[in-house]
Design a protein around this nucleic acid. Sequence first.
DNA 1: GTATGATGCCTACCGATTCTAGGCATCAAC
DNA 2: GTTGATGCCTAGAATCGGTAGGCATCATAC
Lengths: 111, 111
Amino acid sequence: MAKDKADLLQGTLDMLILKSLSLGELHGYGIIQRIRQLSDEMLNVEQGSLYPALYRIEQKGWVSARWDIHETGREAKFYKLTRTGRKQLETQEASWDRLVLAIAKVRQATL
Amino acid sequence: MAKDKADLLQGTLDMLILKSLSLGELHGYGIIQRIRQLSDEMLNVEQGSLYPALYRIEQKGWVSARWDIHETGREAKFYKLTRTGRKQLETQEASWDRLVLAIAKVRQATL
DNA sequence: GTATGATGCCTACCGATTCTAGGCATCAAC
DNA sequence: GTTGATGCCTAGAATCGGTAGGCATCATAC
C-alpha cells in the first residue's frame, strides 16, 4: 500500500506550496493534489501539515486568500501568490539548490 | 563575513555525520571541520547541533565511540561507523535522492 | 435510504531536531 | 596573560511536520 511516500524535510513544504501556487490560483485541498500529482505520487502533504502552513504563509504575506465557489459548485478558499511570495519562492529555490549542491559535494568526497 | 552559510534542513545532519565518518574515524570537532571543508565552506554545523546529534546517533547504534589521544597529544572522543550505521547511511542517501528527485519534478512543472 | 469515500476546512497536541547561548578545559601564539 | 582555536558538554527556545481528531457536503454503491 505505497508506504513509499517520502516524509518532507522541514523547510521544504513552504517552497512546494509556493511553487504549486505559482502555476495558478488554487484552494488548499487542490494544493495537496497538485503536489502529489506533479511529484508522481512521491510527495504526499497531509492536511494537518498544509493548513497550518498556509496560515503561516498568509501571515507572512506570501499568499492572499479569498473564498469563492469553484466549478463544481462547492465553496473553497483560494490562495494566490503575492509579489512578495514570488520573490520568496525564488529565494527558497536558491537556498534549496545551494543545499543540494553542498550535500552533493560532501557525498562525492572520497578523501 | 560569510553569512552565506546555509542552515541545515532537519534530517540532513545525520546523513552528513554518517557520511563524514564513512571516510574514517573522527572526533566530534573534526566532523564539523570535515563537513565544512568537503562542502567548500557552504555547510557549517554548530557544536550545539553536533554533539546532541552524535549522542542520538550513538544511542541508535549507528556509531561507536571511544576516548583516545590523537596525534596532537590531546584527548578526544573518536566516533566510528558501525555496520548498522553504514546501512543507515545508504538508506538516508536513498531517501535524500528520492526527495531531491521529487522536488525537482514539482519544480519542473509548468502545467 | 443509507453507508462510504472523496472533497473541503480546521484545531490541538506530539515529536523530532536544529540553533542559541551558555559553561568548561587545554594549548599555542602574541 | 590574554586571546583564539581546539575539544567536550548542556539547557532551553523555536520551528515545523505529523497524528488524530472534528465538521460539512456530495456522489456513488449497496
